[in-house]
Amino acid sequence: MTSAPGSLESLRSRNRLRVLETVQQRGAITRVDIARTTGLSRTTVSSLVTELLSEGALSELAEPLASSPGGGRPATLLALNPGGGGVLGVHLRHDGVRVVLADLSGQVLGERQRTIDVDHRPADSLAYVADAALELVADWGRGMRRVVGMGVAVSAPVQRVSHALRNPSMLRDWGDVDIAARLRERVGVPVHVGNDANLGAIAEWTFGVGRGADDLIYVMLSDGVGAGLILNGRPYEGAAGAAGELGHVTVVDGGYVCRCGNRGCLETVVGTRALVAAVAHSRGPDTTLADVVELAVAGDPGCHRVVADAGRTIGRTLSGLCAVLDPKLVIVGGGIAAAGAPLLDGVREVLARRLPPAISQGVVVTASRLGDHAEVLGAVALATRRTSAHLLAPS
């Protein structure tokens, strides 16, 4: 029986999840800091932590802090118990699928991936996800009932309430596909769906370079371009779940037609196809993004220029967003981010020129720490956050 939304049982369940989310995001944290972060009373936190420790969802780290804020006995750090269960993460890119099994701390235990035309082959893509997930759990050897859930990152906006793809979706062949229902039927665990750029932001905030930053923008540069926002210590998805669609901001009047139907979107200028096309006329039709990145890093003048120009265009698009939101970090991820300095310096150059000094001097532009695993690890974090805490109890 599901508890009523306003019942004491429902309130306690929500508070348990708040504690788990806080521990997950911080990595290691004391009871006092959990209370300070969540706003819950110390008595409530102490009761919930005791419960979660007994269930195996949390564990106490071997070495406590050297001293406690008020003196006396050293404070003990709490962390998610890696052995408390497994979590499946999926990234449905435009051109391929990645599936991982991770523990509750985000450590990847196994991985499968395949190149496939995801945009136009939903049935094949989901069949592969289900088969790969079942194989990973079988190899793990602890059984499906120890898997607390599955998160799925998709390259399209996702509705906030239903977590279904917005209709009409930019993945047009997926418009009537209930991803969560199909995978739940095949795999047998709770399934949660989110936009890949949003989940990349959550991953960097939870496991990566953004840990400890309450205000950040994550920019995902791949076939498409997206942004994920963490504002005031919370993921921000907007009123309709479509916040962060940076790739569909117009940057060239009358430019190429984008898959969204508009002309001159950022995606048509700095996405994978645009960058490869800019180099292919001199390097040949078999040029890949990996070639562009490798040559740019090696100092090839043409590729260096293409990547640096992309960085400047991204910086121009970000400047208005940064002026409004005043983030602490801009994290650049996705396949193109591997080009490093030429791309990042282009972003920094334009932000320094276009933003008021009070903002430009405070924002740090940095590369993703998680690389091409950011989105799938964000899916892992999503599943952990959305799954009821009681499922994390040991067998």
Rank of each mutant, 00 (worst) to 15 (best):
E21A: 13
V23M: 05
R234Y: 13
Y218D: 02
Y236L: 10
H163V: 00
V189C: 05
P357Q: 10
G27C: 06
D176H: 06
D139Y: 05
R26P: 00
V270M: 02
G96L: 04
P82Y: 11
G378A: 11
L377Y: 01
G333P: 03
A374F: 02
A153H: 08
T268D: 00
G254H: 09
D223K: 14
V249A: 15
V364A: 11
R112C: 01
R312V: 01
H94A: 09
G315Y: 04
W174F: 14
A374C: 11
V297D: 00
V376E: 10
G151S: 07
V365F: 12
T76A: 14
R186F: 04
G264H: 03
Q113T: 08
S162D: 11
P74Y: 02
L40Q: 08
T22Y: 04
V307C: 04
G254D: 14
V90D: 03
S395W: 13
V363Q: 09
A379L: 06
E204Y: 05
V32G: 02
V332C: 12
A28E: 13
L92S: 03
D196Y: 03
N195D: 13
G299R: 08
L391V: 02
G96C: 09
T250C: 12
G194K: 00
R369N: 10
L382H: 07
A180M: 03
L20W: 00
V118M: 05
